[in-house]
Design a protein around this nucleic acid. Sequence first.
DNA 1: TGAAATGTTGGGGCG
DNA 2: ACGCCCCAACATTTC
Length: 489
Amino acid sequence: MRQGSRSPPAPVPHVANRAVSLLWFRRDLRLEDNAALAAAAREADALVPVYVHAPAEEGEWAPGAASRWWLHASLKALSQALAARGSRLLVLEESCSSEAIARLARAVGARTVHWNRLYEPHLAARDAMVARALAEAGIEARSYPGHLLLEHASLRSAGNAPYRIYTPFARAAEKALRLPAPLPAPARLPPLPPGLPEGVSVEDLRLRPRIPWDAGLHEIWKPGEAGAHERLEAMRARLSGYAEKRDAPALAATSRLSPHLHFGEISVARTWRAACGTGAGAAAFRRELLWREFASYVLHHYPHTVREPLDRRFARFPWREDAALLAAWQRGRTGIPIVDAGMRELWRTGWMHNRVRMIVASFLTKHLRLSWLAGARWFWDTLVDADLAANTLNWQWVAGCGADAAPYFRIFNPVLQSQKFDSRGEYLARWVPELASLGPAARHAPWQAPPEVLAAARLRLGEDYPLPVADLAAARAEALAAYRALTAR
DNA sequence: TGAAATGTTGGGGCG
DNA sequence: ACGCCCCAACATTTC
């Protein structure tokens, strides 16, 4: 048995009669407004907060590299927060959560296991297995509403079919919304029971990259509950300008709460309450939170969409396979400045501005005609806010094969988007510095700049910066033809 | 949470 | 003064 050095284990009277509980942390890495934690802290005489690292269980959708970086830092933060309240985070590295939780419960004599629910189908199924294993051992599993605004699986459109269109879904969800009063973080947590296994350290999980590519992540992110609250307060202060400025990637006008929300470092209910005003900014922000709900809802009802298009016609869409093109896109070497800027921002910071996500995704799936799934996999590995539901929905949305999808013929022109949303070329200069010597006007499409302009900027296209990997007009026409072939019979 | 092509309108230059 | 043309600005349609 091991306890914190500050609190030597005192002999505990009536051990057998004390109520021992487990609190299973997953993607609710916070103390405030945490239903499972509040209940466990209220009821248990002794409590084991535990995190089980079992990535093999999640198959191909185990956290990617950027998510693992975040998880490492977030677990450290949670660990400290628990220690400050007289407890400790027990970290286990296992191949099977169900066995690990049941074994731990038996070892410490726990009669109840508390957790906040997850909604990804494969994780919900895993949790059902855990609950069954516990029931067989005579241990009660108690789950609580998790990382959504409401448990919306039962919402149905007319005809009892699941919603497939955002707007009616959002209307129904907002109408059904009942936010319970927020739960304060417990000031003090129940002590740990005796008989606790050693566990491993957060470091032992080897979540951090072996080669240190994470400098850029450290610069802009502060994983953990405190960092989440800082972002929320900053967001609150900027909310009135949100509707107008959120589309400009050069501005820090978006909330950047997505990774904090994904890991549950702040409750989505608290986030919603911060944006409950009547202004256009608050309304626009709430719509984004409802897109997050919609993504979870669609994945729940159509779990196969993580691999296959929701629109079945797209099963036979002739996606191209081209490793070199994909690599150029991934590493920001397409020769299209706004695309390269976004992909480099992603590589460096683990995040990309939402407007630019749409642009790079449209470019990949339409101009390059590479599969949305190839894009989704890259995002999965590189985004700190990678979320299976949102990633799946948004990629299919852009590709035109998903729920409430952009029609196939809606093809973003990356040059026009760049001119419209980064008119001064600041975002481009920041992320594609080799173009900074060009004037802002020429920066959006350097291949169209007159030779003397390029010469004056000392820019040799094809050497200092790539020539475009696709002819935008021709690629657009080819994409339209390919997509049109789907609807012809 | 488009873009491009096509259609319409109206002001102004000009014979 | 008038018709004609050009074309920018805006609207509609098509993909």
